[in-house]
Design a protein around this nucleic acid. Structure first.
Length: 486
DNA sequence: CTGGGGACGGGGCCC
DNA sequence: CGGGCCCCGTCCCCA
């Protein structure tokens, strides 16, 4: 015979004991504030405490003292309250910090709830985004960069507190919090970005999509405690297949649905505890994609950077001297980095921000070096290799061929053989092939008209104009160059 | 179907 | 802290 209320009463009693400082054998010092608790309870609730207490368990007569400087007392209070009550009072204000602390303390239940909490605002956020986009589309002339709705959303301070109880309560709730709404917004933006890629390639290779889906679903049940153990995991899957996989999987599902037009229920899919309230049809996606601007993405990314709490740093590993090593943890996944700047860089893979557009083709990059590499190889024929025979060519043995905005090298032999009567194999479809007598120039290449009037151009390369797009006013180049978000 | 190669993205780390 | 370099993994195209 099982008395169902026993566990509840037991926990209640322990909580009472904690409040009255009865039998508390562990003190936790968080930024100067002392919390009393029971070793047993902490041991059972947190992987971190399990490790800590098991190491110091030899001497149980002495009270254990743990000190934390990586999260605030308020955050630890939330976590400790949860440990002793099963109720997690999450708000949009504290969810990131709680998630970060829970990650540090290796409390996967809390982590999952935090993730669900963030995701749960996707629904309302999609609606807000729709509203925003429709408004911004109307107001682009007067106010292109600071949409009224978004500003007003930022001002919204009234965040209804909501308690999360594990595991009964599902996260089908929303709140008005700016950050969580925003992070969900970003998620939806990434959906759109990736879906754009998918839509453009629709009909090509479904198997590739499925392969990628498989890849993205690799580590659904990944243990946070093990996230530092494998470098390959960190490097290779830190972004895609880590804890952000719950978010990214939602995105991938949206893509997949868009691509395959899968029949569904009212939600995106039926995965356990995965609630994607809105399903994007292909038409919807295409419509929304046509209104998604990189400037908007960057605005959102900038918003994220300023909104993310400063308490991202966690001591998540130990060095040889058994001293805690400070690392910065991504709020979206398990990835940790040594430097704040690296975290900022890493965050771009979550926000979708691509501040470096290629002036030639409009393709955008997350890093300047990537843009530079792209420009050099694609538009400057930087590789001294004949595109056809793959042999090394020099200025004497070959020449540069321009094809639309693309440049590459051909040796004299291959150039003669090609004769440019047939289309070279890897040209962009939208660009007309260049003929020896032709003089095709993209709008981008017009600046260079004085340099050449043939398909073989002088060695003088195009100059890469680096322009980081992060200002609020859309610049002229961006008006001309169609953004190419991937 | 498969392997090779190009393009790209992302992490680590040095300057 | 930003820039840059190196390295590796993934995706995609093509033979």
């Amino acid at each position: 015979m099982e008395i169902s209320s026993h566990q509840f009463h037991l926990l209640e009693q322990l909580n009472e004991q904690r409040k009255q400082d009865l039998f508390c054998d562990c003190s936790i010092l968080v930024e100067g504030k002392v919390f009393k608790a029971h070793r047993n309870v902490l041991f059972a609730s947190s992987g971190y405490f399990k490790m800590l207490l098991s190491q110091s368990s030899k001497d149980t007569s002495q009270p254990t003292i743990a000190t934390f400087e990586v999260f605030s007392p308020e955050t630890f209070m939330v976590i400790l309250d949860f440990v002793y009550s099963g109720i997690l009072p999450l708000t949009g204000q504290n969810v990131i910090e709680v998630m970060s602390a829970a990650s540090y303390l290796q409390m996967t239940d809390i982590l999952n709830v935090c993730k669900t909490f963030i995701k749960s605002s996707l629904d309302i956020n999609e609606k807000e985004k729709d509203q925003y986009l429709s408004l911004s589309a109307k107001s682009t002339n007067s106010e292109p960069a600071h949409p009224t709705l978004y500003r007003s959303r930022r001002k919204a301070k009234s965040n209804p507190r909501r308690s999360y109880s594990i595991p009964d309560e599902k996260a089908n709730v929303v709140n008005e919090n700016s950050w969580s709404s925003y992070s969900s917004y970003l998620s939806s933006q990434v959906i759109l970005q990736r879906a754009e890629t998918q839509l453009s390639k629709r009909g090509r290779k479904q198997s590739s999509t499925r392969k990628r889906r498989k890849h993205l679903g690799l580590s659904q049940t990944r243990d946070f405690g093990q996230c530092k153990s494998n470098k390959a995991e960190q490097a290779g899957e830190g972004c895609n297949a880590s804890d952000s996989s719950n978010l990214s999987r939602a995105r991938e599902e949206a893509e997949f649905d868009a691509e395959n037009d899968v029949a569904h229920d009212d939600y995106g899919y039926n995965h356990e505890s995965e609630v994607i309230p809105k399903r994007w049809s292909v038409a919807q996606l295409e419509q929304e994609l046509s209104r998604t601007s990189p400037e908007f993405m960057e605005l959102k990314a900038e918003e994220l950077y300023t909104s993310v709490p400063t308490v991202l740093g966690v001591m998540s590993s130990w060095n040889e001297d058994d001293l805690p090593r400070m690392r910065f943890k991504c709020p979206f996944c398990t990835h940790t980095v040594k430097r704040r700047a690296d975290l900022k860089r890493h965050l771009r893979c979550h926000t979708g921000e691509r501040p470096y557009p290629c002036e030639a083709c409009g393709k955008r990059f997350t890093r300047l070096e990537h843009l530079r590499n792209h420009f050099q190889t694609i538009h400057q024929a930087g590789k001294l290799i004949c595109r056809k025979c793959k042999r090394h060519v020099t200025d004497l043995t070959g020449c540069v061929v321009q094809q639309g905005t693309r440049r590459y090298r051909l040796c004299h032999k291959c150039l003669a053989e090609a004769n440019f009567d047939s289309n070279p194999d890897d040209l962009d479809a939208e660009h007309c092939p260049v003929t020896p007598t032709g003089n095709k120039h993209s709008s981008w290449a017009l600046e260079e008209e004085h340099k050449s009037d043939d398909e073989t151009v002088e060695e003088e390369p195009y100059n890469l104009v680096v322009r980081r797009v992060n200002d609020d006013t859309p610049n002229e180049a961006d008006e001309k160059v169609k953004p190419n978000l991937r």
